[in-house]
């Protein structure tokens, strides 16, 4: 995997941040336009996956260390759960939209819809981190077979 194309790696340097920003936009504006936490998270993680494919694992881990991604994964999920539990604490109903009652916001603006936007952010975090982890784990498995050069083929002879 050392013969990476220079063009691909240079271009990915430019494109990855743009994808990242677009992911944030899609996640934030999920309550107003097509999109939301899951697509936003997928786009966010695809920025890192692009880096992973174009420039290798080392360069990716400089951007997003494995441990941080693991933490973000759990934090995103817990954040989502906390939003649901806050609804329970504030209004007495699980998953109730507790912000919207007090801060209705202006419809069709970014700050509207109450808990929907925080929930989208939490989901975006969770999805981005876990998709990145999945791809990273798969790449780790794959590269370790490459390094051995000769995969374990002893069994196939039988």
């Amino acid at each position: 995997m050392n013969n990476r194309s220079l063009i691909v790696s240079r271009v990915s340097r430019w494109v990855a941040p743009l994808i990242f920003v677009f992911g944030i936009y899609v996640a934030l504006y999920g309550h107003l336009s097509p999109g939301g936490g899951f697509p936003g998270g997928v786009i966010l993680s695809s920025a890192f996956i692009l880096t992973l494919l174009a420039r290798g694992r080392k360069a990716t881990l400089e951007r997003l260390p494995f441990g941080v991604a693991k933490k973000l994964d759990a934090v995103g999920a817990l954040l989502f759960l906390c939003i649901a539990l806050f609804g329970l604490v504030v209004t007495g109903v699980f998953f109730a939209n507790f912000i919207h009652q007090y801060l209705p916001g202006e419809p069709l603006r970014l700050f509207s819809g109450g808990t929907i936007m925080p929930a989208n952010i939490a989901i975006g975090l969770k999805v981005a981190a876990s998709l990145f982890l999945v791809m990273f784990a798969l790449s780790a498995l794959r590269i370790s077979t490459d390094e051995q050069d000769e995969p374990i083929r002893t069994l196939e002879d039988k």
Binding site: L131, A137, L141, P151, I152
Partner: peptide, 24 residues
């Protein structure tokens, strides 16, 4: 789709591990 993605990732991982163990 999300569920399918999860199952898919899991199955691919298992397939890779199986390739490690069985070589096929």
């Amino acid at each position: 789709i999300v569920i399918g993605l999860g199952v898919m990732a899991l199955m691919v991982t298992m397939a890779l591990r199986i390739y490690h163990v069985y070589g096929t």
